[in-house]
Structures are given as C-alpha cells and as structure tokens.
Amino acid sequence: TRVETATETAWISLVTALHLVLGLNAVLGLLLLRWQFPAHYRRLRHALW
C-alpha cells in the first residue's frame, strides 16, 4: 500500500505540474497575442462584449 500511495502522490504532482504548465502557456499565449495583434484583439473584444 505504501508503494501505491507513493505512485498516487507522484501522479498528483505530475498532473498538477501539467496543469500549471498549461495554464502558464495559455496566459503567455494570450499576452503574446495581445502584444502582437492589438487591433485584432480589440476587434475580437468588441465582438465578444
């Protein structure tokens, strides 16, 4: 059971790390998009709101 718990903890930390990386990538991607295409982003925002 100790090995199972260790594997579980490893999986949880792995999934958490993946989520963090994906979240960071999403934020960075959005920031890059805003920086690269400000006009396009503004138009998109007007369409959404």
Score class of each variant (00 low, 15 high):
residue 33 L to E: 02
residue 36 Q to H: 06
residue 3 V to Y: 10
residue 2 R to F: 13
residue 10 A to E: 04
residue 47 A to N: 07
residue 23 G to C: 06
residue 6 A to Y: 10
residue 11 W to L: 14
residue 12 I to D: 11
residue 5 T to F: 10
residue 4 E to F: 06
residue 43 R to W: 10
residue 4 E to H: 12
residue 31 L to H: 02
residue 10 A to D: 15
residue 19 H to L: 15
residue 10 A to K: 15
residue 8 E to V: 10
residue 35 W to R: 09
residue 12 I to C: 14
residue 38 P to I: 03
residue 44 L to E: 00
residue 16 T to M: 14
residue 43 R to S: 06
residue 35 W to D: 04
residue 12 I to V: 08
residue 15 V to T: 15
residue 40 H to N: 04
residue 49 W to K: 03
residue 49 W to Q: 02
residue 36 Q to F: 09
residue 49 W to I: 06
residue 26 A to S: 09
residue 33 L to H: 03
residue 42 R to G: 08
residue 38 P to C: 05
residue 18 L to H: 00
residue 34 R to Q: 03
residue 2 R to K: 14
residue 44 L to C: 05
residue 36 Q to N: 07
residue 40 H to I: 12
residue 39 A to T: 09
residue 6 A to K: 12
residue 21 V to P: 01
residue 17 A to R: 08
residue 24 L to A: 14
residue 6 A to C: 09
residue 44 L to S: 01
residue 1 T to A: 11
residue 39 A to M: 09
residue 19 H to A: 15
residue 32 L to E: 00
residue 43 R to T: 05
residue 46 H to P: 01
residue 2 R to P: 12
residue 28 L to A: 12
residue 16 T to C: 14
residue 29 G to T: 04
residue 11 W to C: 11
residue 3 V to R: 00
residue 7 T to G: 14
residue 7 T to H: 08
residue 10 A to N: 15
residue 49 W to Y: 05
residue 32 L to V: 10
residue 35 W to P: 01
residue 20 L to N: 00
residue 1 T to K: 08
residue 21 V to E: 00
residue 8 E to K: 12
residue 2 R to S: 14
residue 34 R to N: 03
residue 40 H to W: 08
residue 2 R to L: 11
residue 11 W to R: 15
residue 20 L to I: 06
residue 14 L to K: 08
residue 44 L to G: 02
residue 17 A to N: 09
residue 15 V to E: 06
residue 13 S to C: 06
residue 23 G to Q: 02
residue 31 L to N: 00
residue 26 A to N: 00
residue 23 G to F: 06
residue 26 A to D: 03
residue 16 T to H: 09
residue 20 L to D: 00
residue 37 F to E: 01
residue 36 Q to E: 05
residue 37 F to S: 03
residue 18 L to V: 14
residue 27 V to G: 06
residue 41 Y to P: 02
residue 5 T to K: 03
residue 13 S to G: 10
residue 14 L to I: 14
residue 30 L to Q: 01
residue 30 L to I: 11
residue 15 V to R: 15
residue 28 L to W: 03
residue 25 N to Q: 15
residue 24 L to H: 00
residue 14 L to H: 04
residue 6 A to D: 08
residue 48 L to Y: 03
residue 29 G to P: 02
residue 22 L to D: 06
residue 22 L to Q: 10
residue 30 L to V: 11
residue 9 T to H: 14
residue 48 L to M: 12
residue 24 L to K: 06
residue 9 T to F: 12
residue 22 L to W: 06
residue 16 T to F: 14
residue 15 V to M: 13
residue 45 R to P: 03
residue 27 V to Q: 01
residue 36 Q to T: 04
residue 12 I to S: 14
residue 26 A to T: 08
residue 15 V to F: 12
residue 48 L to E: 01
residue 43 R to Q: 08
residue 21 V to Y: 05
residue 15 V to K: 11
residue 48 L to A: 07
residue 15 V to L: 05
residue 2 R to Q: 14
residue 5 T to N: 02
residue 8 E to N: 14
residue 47 A to R: 07
residue 20 L to W: 13
residue 22 L to R: 01
residue 22 L to Y: 10
residue 49 W to F: 08
residue 3 V to K: 02
residue 30 L to K: 00
residue 28 L to D: 00
residue 47 A to T: 09
residue 43 R to E: 02
residue 36 Q to A: 05
residue 47 A to L: 08
residue 7 T to A: 06
residue 47 A to V: 09
residue 23 G to H: 02
residue 33 L to S: 01
residue 21 V to W: 12
residue 30 L to Y: 14
residue 5 T to C: 06
residue 15 V to H: 14
residue 20 L to P: 00
residue 5 T to I: 13
residue 39 A to K: 06
residue 23 G to D: 02
residue 32 L to F: 10
residue 19 H to M: 15
residue 39 A to W: 06
residue 10 A to P: 12
residue 38 P to R: 04
residue 29 G to N: 00
residue 44 L to T: 02
residue 26 A to W: 00
residue 16 T to I: 15
residue 24 L to W: 01
residue 40 H to D: 03
residue 14 L to F: 13
residue 46 H to A: 12
residue 40 H to K: 06
residue 19 H to V: 15
residue 6 A to L: 09
residue 49 W to L: 05
residue 3 V to T: 05
residue 11 W to I: 10
residue 28 L to M: 09
residue 14 L to N: 14
residue 48 L to F: 09
residue 19 H to G: 15
residue 47 A to M: 03
residue 44 L to Q: 00
residue 49 W to A: 05
residue 4 E to K: 06
residue 25 N to G: 15
residue 39 A to D: 14
residue 46 H to T: 08
residue 41 Y to Q: 02
residue 24 L to G: 11
residue 13 S to A: 07
residue 8 E to I: 07
residue 27 V to I: 11
residue 8 E to S: 12
residue 30 L to C: 07
residue 7 T to R: 12
residue 40 H to L: 11
residue 49 W to G: 04
residue 31 L to R: 01
residue 21 V to D: 00
residue 23 G to K: 00
residue 5 T to D: 03
residue 33 L to Q: 03
residue 9 T to M: 13
residue 37 F to G: 02
residue 18 L to A: 14
residue 39 A to N: 13
residue 9 T to V: 11
residue 13 S to P: 15
residue 1 T to M: 14
residue 4 E to I: 05
residue 29 G to A: 12
residue 31 L to A: 12
residue 1 T to D: 08
residue 22 L to T: 00
residue 1 T to R: 04
residue 7 T to L: 05
residue 33 L to T: 01
residue 13 S to I: 06
residue 24 L to N: 00
residue 17 A to I: 15
residue 20 L to Y: 04
residue 12 I to H: 11
residue 36 Q to P: 01
residue 29 G to L: 12
residue 31 L to C: 08
residue 48 L to H: 05
residue 25 N to H: 07
residue 3 V to D: 00
residue 10 A to W: 13
residue 23 G to Y: 07
residue 13 S to L: 12
